[in-house]
Amino acid sequence: MFSNIFKRDDLMEYDLRKKFLAELVGTFLLVFFGTGAAVGAALIVHSYIPTGAIGALGGFSEWLAVSWGFGITALVAIYAFGKVSGGHINPAVTIGLLVTKNISLKNATFYILAQFIGAVIATLCVFSVFGMDGVLIGALGANAPGVGISYLQAFIGEIIGTFLLVLVVMGVAVDKKADPGIYGLAIGLAIGISLTVLGPITGGCINPARGFSPIIVDFLAGGVNLLIYLPIFIIGPIIGSIIAALLYKYIAISNNE
């Protein structure tokens, strides 16, 4: 059923160490440039939101820059490293492929480890570039529910946002009928529109590694304590990913067999 870019013969040319490095660097680029854009927008607006909800900062144009900064970075990183590791750069994507048996448990474990390491290194670099202003004003790009948004609302938002992303991944990069030439563009667009909507709700995450690293590093650097929100940005995307992957597999099998 699933003869796809994640199982292409040329991926077999790369050993797990190279795939690990590709996922680490790809996730590093995504988190550095994405959260860097968020911190930059916060510094431009120069308004500190105690909840750390970057999506509440400034006007819509600033948030568009952040959300599409993530989308465009994901697009280029996927095209850069897709031929090596498939370009997951997101633990939620890897888990979705794991539950549909498109990646082995061993490879998935190493991918997820690489993604979290890459994300933490990226946040440390954001800290080194922006300094304490990035911590105190931009919260290093950390996610949190927006003003007036409940914990449950934020959780549901992250589930739906990740659902869209993984549904697109399954449709353009996993399904055997997909056109492999457009998969990076389609995934980047899915990330961009998802984060545009989620901006005022959660700050836009849909990636457990991206959600984890700024919250942890910002807290350790003396910023706002957002640890209570970690489950939203780790568990929420995983749930959305699993639902999307299993649903698409069911739909695709029904239509293609």
Rank of each mutant, 00 (worst) to 15 (best):
S3L: 13
N4I: 11
I5F: 14
L11G: 06
L11Q: 10
M12C: 09
E13M: 10
R17C: 04
K19Y: 03
L21N: 11
L21F: 15
E23I: 02
E23C: 06
L24G: 00
V25D: 04
G26R: 00
L30S: 00
F32I: 07
G36H: 02
G36E: 04
G36C: 03
V39T: 04
V39A: 03
V39C: 00
L43C: 01
I44C: 04
V45M: 11
H46P: 00
H46D: 15
Y48T: 15
I49L: 03
P50Y: 11
I54M: 13
G55Y: 07
A56F: 05
A56R: 07
G58C: 08
G59K: 07
F60N: 11
E62D: 11
W63K: 09
L64Y: 06
A65C: 12
W68C: 13
G69I: 02
G71L: 02
I72F: 15
L75N: 06
L75R: 02
I78D: 12
A80D: 01
G82F: 14
G82P: 15
K83R: 13
S85P: 10
G86K: 04
I89S: 01
I89L: 12
P91E: 12
P91K: 04
V93F: 14
G96W: 08
L98D: 06
V99F: 06
T100F: 02
S104A: 09
L105H: 05
L105W: 12
L105G: 05
A108Y: 11
T109E: 05
T109C: 08
L113R: 10
A114M: 02
Q115W: 01
A119S: 07
T123H: 03
C125N: 07
C125Y: 05
V126S: 09
F127E: 10
S128A: 15
M132D: 12
D133S: 14
G134W: 08
I137C: 02
G141P: 08
G141Y: 03
A142S: 07
A142E: 08
A144V: 02
I149S: 00
S150G: 09
S150R: 05
L152T: 15
A154Q: 10
F155P: 01
G157R: 12
E158Y: 01
E158T: 12
I159M: 08
L164W: 02
L164K: 05
V166I: 13
V168N: 00
M170P: 03
A173L: 06
A173E: 09
K177R: 15
D179Y: 03
G181S: 13
I182S: 09
I182N: 03
L185C: 10
A186M: 08
I187K: 03
G188Y: 04
G188S: 01
L189V: 12
A190L: 00
S194R: 01
L198P: 00
I201K: 04
T202R: 01
G203L: 03
I206T: 10
I206G: 08
A209Y: 05
P214K: 09
P214H: 13
L220A: 05
G222S: 02
I232D: 00
S241V: 12
A244E: 05
A244R: 11
A244N: 09
A245T: 04
K249H: 12
K249G: 14
Y250W: 15
I251E: 08
A252K: 14
A252M: 14
N255E: 15
